[in-house]
Write a protein that binds this DNA or RNA. Sequence first.
DNA 1: TCCTCCCTGTTC
DNA 2: GAACAGGGAGGA
Length: 284
Amino acid sequence: MPELPEVETIARTLAPQVVGKIIADIEVLLPKTLQDDEALLPGVKGARIRCVFRRAKLLLVEVQPDGNAQGAEGKPLLMAFHLKMTGRFFVHPAGTAPGRHTRLIFDLDDGGRLFFDDMRRFGFCRLLRPDDLPKWPFWAQLGPEPLEMLPKELAAHLAAHCKNKRAAIKAVLLDQRVVAGIGNIYADESLFKAGIDPTAPAAAVAPARFLALAEALQAILRLSIEECGSSIRDYRDAAGNAGAFQNSFAVYGRKDAPCVRCGKALQHARIAGRGTVYCPHCQK
DNA sequence: TCCTCCCTGTTC
DNA sequence: GAACAGGGAGGA
């Protein structure tokens, strides 16, 4: 389930494999994976990949269409991928046949084949002009990048969004409109590190505790990026490597196991429809 | 503000 | 053969 650190790792490992190459052809094996409201696909064919970057949990690929392509007008285009739970990228050698879960194939001019695989079919690739990004409601509503703020700023931002909110503090962290890129793993881990009960109503979290939460969130995200993300089940980066941060989990996936701090059994709850593991003794 | 749905493979 | 994993859309 790629969250911020995983998508960041994928962007970093994918970029050196594809930037500068030309997309010679595109094969759409699962039509619903490709969201192309403006029929921009012809412009992507023959386009050169300029850069690969991340915003929230989105992986963005900017391409420069061939100047002669019909309707492309020489302006850059964006491919915005959301990997959801099981999206993966891999660059295969020429001639590699699609796998069972391959949804899109981008044939590169050097013969390489960039596969977008997605077992559970939730992921998508949206084609758009950079100018149209603000018209995409999901993009327009995204909150700030948590690693691009000072801890103090992030703390104040979180505190402001938690004011008067009855929803659980964890639900607020998962809300992409508040902060972008946090998923189930990093919400649980950062709340544990900050010693905050994930089930507590956001409004009940004392203002003084948001600095600890902001610092925990940033520390966990930075550490995970250093470790190339967390690999549970499906996740691999674009070079096929697993991350290592799953070895540092204090709570995620550790229901009933002893708390690393106090040794008491970790509890399980369901918050905002997501499985949640926490230590009632250490998180209040 | 919470629930259901979309999906398929793994675990109980 | 059911429960579970879960990001986000859409509906109650």
